[in-house]
Design a binder for these strands. Structure first.
Lengths: 140, 140
DNA sequence: CACGTAAGTTGCAAAAAGCAACCGACTAAA
DNA sequence: TTTAGTCGGTTGCTTTTTGCAACTTACGTG
């Protein structure tokens, strides 16, 4: 389910841009180098999925700005984690986008946390246990 | 860069399965319902990208098991975050995969953390500040 | 009026994905 | 010792998805 919404070459990129505050069609298109029809299609799919909202900023010829909904903003931990991964493994200079705490402007970290032990957990200490249904999967 | 590696319909799903301990070609194929040629292609691309390793478990006809490398395991925060998102917004029962702390078997959480304020940061308090290059982007 | 721009849509070509059949090297069963 | 079955692929062909260029609508500018 999750990947049927964001599992293509563009959706995550579009979401990242929206997350960074890019709002308009043409800005997105230029920044990403995406074809207009694809951008149009992705935005409407993300809209249908309830991840993106449109708000007109002018009406004469109707022109929308695109925003993340709550559901869309809720993807931010995933985006942050992916950006961190990119920074770590493909870094060749400055990180592309720095996410900061709006209250103090410090760059944020993402940690995996164990609520019982109350400690950060590194990758080597993670086990996985299959649960019931599979939401990540297409067919779920 | 990041999305040129994992930004397609299958790669993240394959990684999730490897992360859960699925190891063999046929297991992956059955679990995901992916075509064999695509699975073969994705595994070799992930291998080239240094995310997946193969280790033969028999030699007569060579048969490999697939494992995540360090770089691959390093994607776990992203996968965890995506799974959480799926659980939250598409939940219709049990979560599909539960990730636990191997030391105490508690289900893990992912938190965004401000090292200055030393508090968890919720989505509404995140700002973004563009940096230099763009690693998430294809063209970077 | 002639241009330019933002946000699309349409039509066609190219690339990627899906599907079914085949293959090689074995193993197990009759 | 044929015969069938499995695993991990590859090959060839069809369908779907992308990408690109051109066109459109409704303005605003000089």
């Amino acid at each position: 389910m999750t990947l049927s919404v964001i599992g293509d070459r563009w959706s995550l990129l579009i979401l990242r841009d929206l997350f960074r505050g890019v709002r308009r069609f043409e800005e997105l298109r230029k920044d990403l180098g995406i074809a207009k029809n694809i951008l149009s299609d992705r935005l409407s799919k993300l809209h249908q999925a309830g991840i993106v909202e449109q708000q007109p900023y002018q009406v004469k010829p109707i022109r929308n700005e695109y925003f993340l909904t709550r559901k869309g903003r809720d993807l931010s931990p995933s985006l942050i984690a992916l950006m961190h991964w990119g920074d770590r493994w493909y870094a060749d200079g400055e990180p592309p986008t720095i996410l900061t705490h709006s209250l103090c402007d410090t760059a944020l970290e993402q940690i995996t946390h164990c609520p019982t032990c109350n400690v950060p957990v590194n990758t080597e200490q993670i086990s996985s246990r299959p649960g019931g249904r599979q939401h990540l999967s297409k067919s779920a």
